[in-house]
Structure formats: structure tokens, C-alpha cells
Design a protein around this nucleic acid. Structure first.
Length: 386
RNA sequence: GUGGAUGUAGCUCAGCUGGUUAGAGCAUCAGAUUGUGGUUCUGAGGGUCGUGGGUUCGAGCCCCAUCUUCCACC
């Protein structure tokens, strides 16, 4: 009766191995744009571009298996007309692998000028030109149909932190109302370009266990192709995020991929995997990379620091990317200090390569059966500052 | 040589009629960044106010000398 999504989308998820000492698992998501090995990190390409990175670098060097686009941004620019005439985002940006699009709910709350939430949807003003727009659970699906993303996200309200219980409860009720309408509209619409398009609902409920449970239980019953956890890593203590994740993952169906939205640091991702999460996205490797922060298996480097001025060693000892081997710390620092655009590009390639390496290692360790011990050590390593 | 202007943080400059701990931008150094702000945010260090005298309760500011740099005129 609630078995809605798989019949329509044809997306498949197969678990290959499970860790004995944690809830970590590794598997494969199949889409019509190819397979995704989980756990996976998805580079963020908000406006149809992973900032500073060519698509061929993304595919061949970084080995990204799926990237993100954003409905809010793409709807404002270039707009649905361009995207439709281009034949969808895949063609428009020359990316053949899967794309997941966020619905824009988060952006309405973080970027838009004046916003007003009603049962109908979210009315907001563009951060670009101030023009007024309305997102509804239905039209964000229509826009994502035009984009042609392999995974579409439901419109939700991302609650801020801190957030009082009453607000969180009301907010969840609105997100749930929007979700029911979204599911209905999803059933009644079709992909435009022949590829399968899954629809992921989003668990909310702030940091309140009962609200999170209520939200996860509702969503579990929908039996969609995958399920997302939103409203975390918005300022709450990390431990609280893990607690919520544990509660939610114990309820969301095991045989469906679980997507923790917007997370996070390398340590966050490793802990998230241990708690049974399969998909992650975060701007951190690219945004922080653009500002000179490098993530490595030995810890975090601020490449702008003076101590690297005469350090002619390669960027990272455990090279996960060609940039690690051919460039030195001193040179990369010089590029940043000089404001050269090659600096942020190299740092972004390095960071994304490291993130993709990290989840690949996690997959290997889960298959080999020694994930937990490896994870414990790695969390310590990646969290220290060099 | 004469006349005029100028000198304050690494750089470019504010600094009122003489009044408390001399400021800004850039640069430097460091921090932040979690469903994207590449140009964002925060903090820190850095000064014998050209030099030497003087006036004054008190001088970056007034007076004298001297040096620097620039301009004009002989």
C-alpha cells in the first residue's frame, strides 16, 4: 500500500557486506546513469559546476561517482527554460554519471531574503535580484524533472539550531505535509529524458528524539528508494548529531540507502558510516579548500601558514591525487598568498580526492571485516591539526 | 642659490582650535567555514609621529635649527 517509489524509479540498492562491530555496510546503488558504490561522498556542484574543477578531472582523477546540483540555484540561474532546451543538466554540464539535486529547501532558509512559509509552500526573494518566487512540494519536483537528476529531494524546512521544541514540532508537521503532497506529485509525473529519477524524503525533528522518531517512522513507511536525514550539522554539538543519527538510522529501512545531508568533516563521515549511513555531501572539501584548508590522512593543514614557506615536500605523503605528487607545500602556499586561482583548484582536487579515497577505504575495510578498528584510528588521525 | 610644499605602521594616507592609551585601508600573521558566500567573517602583531632643541601643566599639531623628497623660479 505504501510501496510507492521503486515501481516508478527503478533505482536499486544492494548491500554487499556489513560490518560486525558497527552498523556500517557497503553496497551498490544502481541508477540509469551508472552505479554508485556506498558509502559514498558526493562532491557539491551547486550551480552545475564543482567550483574550479573540470568534469574530466572530477571523473578520472577525483573519481567522483555522483555529484550534487541545487534546485534553488539552478532554478534562479540559468533557469528551467535553458535547462529544458539543453536537454537536462547532465547534457548541459557534460556529466554522464549520476546527479542528486537538493530541493532548495535549505537555500530558502539560508540565502533567500524575505521568506514566508505557508502550507502552500515557501515564498522567498531571490538572493540574486530580489525577485519573488514560490517553491511548493510540487513545483520543486517539476524543476527537478527538468534538471533530470537521478535523485530528487523533497522540499523540507531545515530547522535552525538552537530551535525550541514547539517550533521544531510545527516545522516537522509542515515538512510532513509537504512530503505527502510531494509523494503524490512524484507518482503523477514522469522523467523527461528517459532516465530513472528517485525521490528521497527527508527526516527532520531538530535534536528532539521523539520528533526524530516520529519523522523517521513516517518516512520508513513510505518505502522510498532512499531516505535522507536533514537538519543536522547546523550548529548542534557533534555528539548530539551522532545521537540523532543513531535514533533515525535504527528506524529507517535497512535495505534502502541513507543519506546524511550536508555532512561533514572526515571524522563526521567515518562516524556516520559506522552508524549505518551510506551517502554524504558537504561543501567543506571545496569551500575550505578554496580558503587554504587541506584534509589529509594525517590531519588538517592550513597551507597559508608561514611554516610551509620553505617546505618543499609534496602536498600529502599518502598521495591520493596527481596534485599531491607534482606540487609542493611551498608552491601551493605561494599560490594562495599570491591569490592565484590555481591554488584553490589544487586544494579542491586534493580535498575531494582525499574524501573519495576515505570512503573507498571505508568500503574496503567493511568488506575485509576490520572497519571499526581502522575507523577509530583514522578518526584520531584526520582530526588533528598539522 | 631663492621661494613653496612634504616627512605619522611594511605601503598609501587620516589625525579638528595643542588635551586621555596616535587611527584607517591594504599588506603580514593567525582563526572561522558542514543540503557552497571563490572577492566572506573574526582576531592579532606592527609606531623613538624624519632628527635635535625650545615653548607649554600638556606637542603628531606651535617656534627654531637641521636633514629627506618634490615643485617653481633664478
Amino acid at each position: 500500500m505504501n510501496y510507492l517509489c521503486p515501481q516508478i524509479s527503478l533505482m536499486d540498492f544492494k548491500i554487499i557486506a556489513e560490518d560486525k562491530n558497527s552498523n556500517a555496510r557497503t553496497g551498490i546503488i544502481s541508477t540509469s546513469h551508472g552505479e554508485i558504490q556506498t558509502p559514498i561522498f558526493m562532491p557539491v556542484g551547486t550551480v552545475g559546476s564543482v567550483k574550479g574543477i573540470h568534469q574530466n578531472t572530477l571523473e578520472n582523477d577525483i573519481k567522483a561517482q555522483i555529484i550534487l546540483g541545487n534546485t534553488y540555484h539552478l532554478y534562479l540561474r540559468p533557469g528551467v527554460e535553458v535547462l529544458e532546451k539543453a536537454g537536462g543538466l547532465h547534457k548541459f554540464m557534460s556529466w554522464k554519471k549520476p546527479i542528486l539535486t537538493d530541493s532548495g529547501g535549505y537555500q530558502v532558509f539560508s540565502l533567500a531574503e524575505r521568506r514566508k512559509l505557508t502550507n502552500e509552500g515557501a515564498k522567498f526573494q531571490s538572493h540574486i535580484d530580489g525577485s519573488e518566487h514560490l517553491f511548493t512540494p510540487e513545483n520543486v519536483i517539476d524543476i527537478q524533472r527538468v534538471i533530470g537528476s537521478d535523485i530528487m529531494m523533497a522540499l523540507d524546512e531545515c530547522t535552525p539550531y538552537p530551535c525550541d521544541y514547539e517550533y521544531a514540532k510545527k516545522s516537522l508537521a509542515l515538512t510532513n505535509l509537504w512530503l505527502d503532497r510531494g509523494i503524490e506529485h512524484y507518482k503523477n509525473t514522469k522523467p523527461k529524458y528517459g532516465n530513472s529519477q528517485a525521490y528521497f524524503p527527508i527526516v527532520q525533528g531538530s535534536v528532539f528524539t521523539d520528533l526524530r522518531k516520529e519523522s523517521a517512522e513516517k518516512i520508513a513507511k513510505l518505502n522510498c528508494d532512499g531516505n535522507a536525514i536533514g537538519g543536522l550539522s547546523v550548529g548542534e554539538p557533534t555528539e548530539m548529531m551522532y545521537e540523532m543519527l543513531e535514533v533515525v538510522n535504527s528506524i529507517l529501512p535497512k535495505q534502502k540507502p541513507r543519506y546524511l545531508m550536508g555532512v561533514g568533516t572526515p571524522a563526521n563521515i567515518l562516524e556516520g558510516i559506522a552508524l549505518g549511513t551510506d551517502m554524504f555531501d558537504c561543501v567543506m572539501p571545496t569551500r575550505n579548500g578554496r580558503n587554504g584548508m587541506l584534509f589529509t590522512s594525517n590531519g588538517i593543514i592550513n597551507i597559508k601558514n608561514e611554516k610551509w614557506k620553505f617546505d618543499f615536500s609534496q602536498i600529502a605523503q599518502n598521495a591520493n591525487s596527481f596534485v599531491d605528487e607534482i606540487y609542493t607545500k611551498a608552491y601551493l602556499r605561494h599560490l594562495f598568498i599570491s591569490g592565484e586561482m590555481l591554488g584553490p583548484q589544487i586544494a579542491s582536487i586534493h580535498n575531494l580526492s582525499f574524501y573519495l579515497w576515505l570512503v573507498n577505504e571505508a568500503r574496503n575495510k567493511i568488506k575485509e571485516g576490520n572497519f571499526t578498528a581502522w575507523k577509530e584510528q583514522m578518526v584520531k588521525n584526520v582530526s588533528q591539526r598539522i
